[in-house]
């Protein structure tokens, strides 16, 4: 290799390395807003992800809807049976709810609630760690913005929208991410704390004082709404274990398992209304 070419290669490597080191160093400590550069790259490449996801879905739908129809009849019968039981459940729940509120009030609340949900499809999973974030196919044009709660199809909390939010795509920080924090309360013993991710499938319930008693494995955790991001009352997960924290004697060490599963977040709901009415 001629010396000139060698020098050129070394210069390219040095330039690119310096660029990356600079890029990393301006973000540490982490927490700053996403840079214009990062947003631009997301804006440029997220439509590709969306197109691929759409294409794969199209092929899947062609296969499932026109070719692979084995078992449809039995599935249909099973679904009819499920609908019957679900209708019974619904009727029972509506009766119970009417016990507390007037019907007019109930209808009004349900109508309000429907208007604030934006259904979205998941088109991408975090490239470094699937427990950190996902990308959905709704963006500013659909009324989605930063810091909106995202739930799965069963109403369990999945996470919140974060930057970058482009015209038709948005990144969602999962509650299992290390930097995620949700204010929660346990359903029975009213333990209040902050459910924080660990970038793995299990979360931690932090800031519950060691002097506070109560709480048991399996107890459900609900959002409190104190963080002004997640509306109160959304089901988040359940307590997995409680023990003394050897590292910090002030607080208890509580592990919590989120309800949402990756196989149920192909479709999610973005709640565009924030607690307190901000949209």
């Amino acid at each position: 290799m001629p010396i000139r070419e060698k020098r050129r290669s070394a210069l390219v490597l040095a330039g690119l390395t310096a660029f990356h080191v600079l890029l990393i160093s301006i973000q540490v400590p982490r927490g700053a807003e996403k840079s214009l550069f990062e947003r631009s790259v997301f804006f440029l490449f997220s439509p590709v992800q969306r197109a691929v996801s759409g294409g794969v879905r199209g092929v899947e739908s062609l296969w499932n809807g026109y070719i692979d129809l084995r078992g449809v009849r039995s599935e249909n019968q099973k679904l009819k049976k499920d609908i019957f039981f679900l209708n019974q459940d619904l009727r029972f729940l509506e009766d119970r709810l009417r016990f507390f509120r007037s019907e007019a009030q109930l209808r009004e609340n349900l109508a309000d609630f429907r208007g604030t949900i934006v259904p979205a499809r998941v088109i991408g999973v975090d490239s470094a760690n699937p427990n950190q974030s996902i990308v959905i196919d709704k963006g500013r044009l659909d009324g989605v913005g930063k810091d909106m709660a995202v739930c799965d199809r069963f109403g369990y909390l999945v996470g919140r929208t974060i930057e970058p939010v482009s015209l038709k795509e948005t990144m969602v920080q999962l509650i299992t991410d290390k930097d995620s924090s949700v204010s929660v309360v346990s359903a029975v013993d009213r333990l209040t704390g902050s459910m924080t991710g660990r970038s793995d499938p299990v979360c931690e319930l932090r800031y519950v004082l060691a002097s506070v008693t109560g709480g048991r494995p399996g107890e459900e955790l609900l959002t409190t709404g104190y963080d002004k991001i997640y509306p109160p009352g959304i089901r988040v997960g359940r307590i997995q274990s409680l023990e003394k924290d050897e590292a910090s004697p002030i607080f208890r060490r509580i592990l919590a398992a989120p309800y949402f599963r990756f196989n149920t977040i192909d479709v999610v709901a973005v709640l565009t209304e924030r607690p307190g009415g901000g949209g």
Binding site: L13, T17, I24, V28, A128, S133, D177
Partner: peptide, 28 residues
């Protein structure tokens, strides 16, 4: 190597964009 470095930068930064990690780590 020159093409490899350029492609590495582009692929790495795109990978970083689709992740919540620090932007530039995969790039580097």
């Amino acid at each position: 190597e020159v093409f490899g470095a350029l492609l590495g930068t582009m692929c790495g930064l795109v990978q970083d964009t689709f992740s919540l990690g620090v932007f530039g780590v995969a790039g580097l």
